[in-house]
Design a protein around this nucleic acid. Structure first.
Lengths: 229, 229
DNA sequence: TAAGTTTAGTGTGTGCTATACACTATGTCA
DNA sequence: TGACATAGTGTATAGCACACACTAAACTTA
């Protein structure tokens, strides 16, 4: 089967920058290419957009197929149309970034035989295509957005301690935050639910657990409240 | 001439939301379609991406061809891949928004015979395709971005009075601002150059003229300064 | 030329918010 | 039971956001 058009057309792909957070670093999931070009190099998960799916759907499908991830927070980042970004032909890619809870989605192997792995954001391998640029753009967007949108919670387990939340912001914003001021600020927003539970299996005093209250946040937002760290 | 591919491909277009500001309102430039579908309806300027041009270039070219505008501030907005957004076939569009100085670019007729005209943002006609949604998205982006990036100056003449600048923010943010606080804030940023000139041909006390100092702004930004209105 | 009209241009006080900063409480482990 | 590790808490200060009203200057018109 083949398809013919009056004018030449670019191929359209999606690529995903998948962020995860562990006790140490901000991480990114990469897959190892098993085909030329850039065979053997690490790359962002992604692939061609089908004609019967939206761009968002394509991004989700590729994530599922290549990394086994499902139901993650996904947001469009930017569309890159540099002419020679793919050595084979003109390929325009719609870049997305995703936030996943490493605690839930334990480092899974890719379902379709390619190697998939997490890399610390400041210890990345050489990447295929212009994926380093896309990744840098995603990182920048995340750092910017996390301060005025409560998307950070997408990286934490549903139940989390305030220390974990603070750690998240310290890692993403790359600067230390004052514990007392941080707690004051976040609790004053009144968007967390105190679960009346504490951590278990920790070798020290256990911290209280909270969860992010999406509904309350939505309500407050309608009343003009602005999230900001 | 025709082009054949192994898999079907979406058509790729760019569409531009062009903002301008006059003494009254925030305006948008639209063109009247002279071909089906939506023949006769108003639409965003835009068209197909050629294979030998980047997306940015395509957006600039379409703007030039359809509205006569050149050297305007142009920024990518979002890529829309809804499946049935064009009744003919699958069309993915990369939306841009542009800011132009109405003072420089006097309302020009389109160069390629289509009608082009400015519309006040809150008095728009029915638009073709999903252009109303794209326009709303652009408006939202502009309102958000104008507060923490000095892009508003792209809508003003190079020499402007503080009243005009304040008016710009009042129109875009859709709320009144206090004159003294506004002046204090903007002058304290130290990103304007006092030109030691005054308005002419006004029927009242003439205001001093300023211009935005791009270089100074860049320098300050490197030192951690953050623009904010 | 005087009065009227229109916009330019200016300063202060008050309350809130950001920030800096250090100790006690509680649980685990040896 | 003592050492260790992290949880959890309050206050003081400085700077910033915001509210607020009058005088100055230029032109217009009677």
């Amino acid at each position: 089967m083949s398809y013919t058009y009056e004018y030449p057309r670019a191929a359209l792909t999606v690529d995903c920058v998948v962020f995860g957070l562990d006790e140490e670093d901000l991480k990114v999931m990469l897959i190892q290419r098993d085909l030329p070009p850039f065979e053997g190099r690490w790359a962002l998960p992604g692939g061609f957009v089908h004609l019967d799916e939206t761009l968002d759907d394509a991004a989700m499908r590729e994530l599922r197929e290549e990394t086994g991830l499902e139901k993650v927070y996904l947001e469009q980042l930017y569309t890159i149309g540099t002419i020679d970004r793919d050595p084979r032909e003109r390929v325009v890619t719609v870049a997305y970034y995703a936030l996943v809870r490493l605690s839930d989605h334990r480092v899974q192997a890719a379902t379709d035989a390619r190697e998939a792995a997490w890399f610390a954001i400041d210890d990345l391998p050489n990447l295929a295509f212009d994926h380093d640029k896309i990744l840098a753009m995603a990182h920048e967007r995340l750092s910017g957005k996390v301060r005025y949108q409560p998307i950070g919670f997408e990286l934490l387990p549903n139940k989390f301690a305030l220390r974990q939340l603070q750690h998240l912001y310290e890692v993403i914003l790359d600067r230390p935050l004052d514990k007392r001021n941080f707690r004051k600020k976040i609790l004053a927003m009144d968007i967390l639910v105190d679960l009346d539970e504490v951590e278990t299996d920790v070798a020290h005093r256990a911290a209280r657990l909270y969860r992010f209250d999406k509904k309350k946040y939505a309500r407050l937002t309608k009343q003009g409240f602005n999230f900001e760290i």
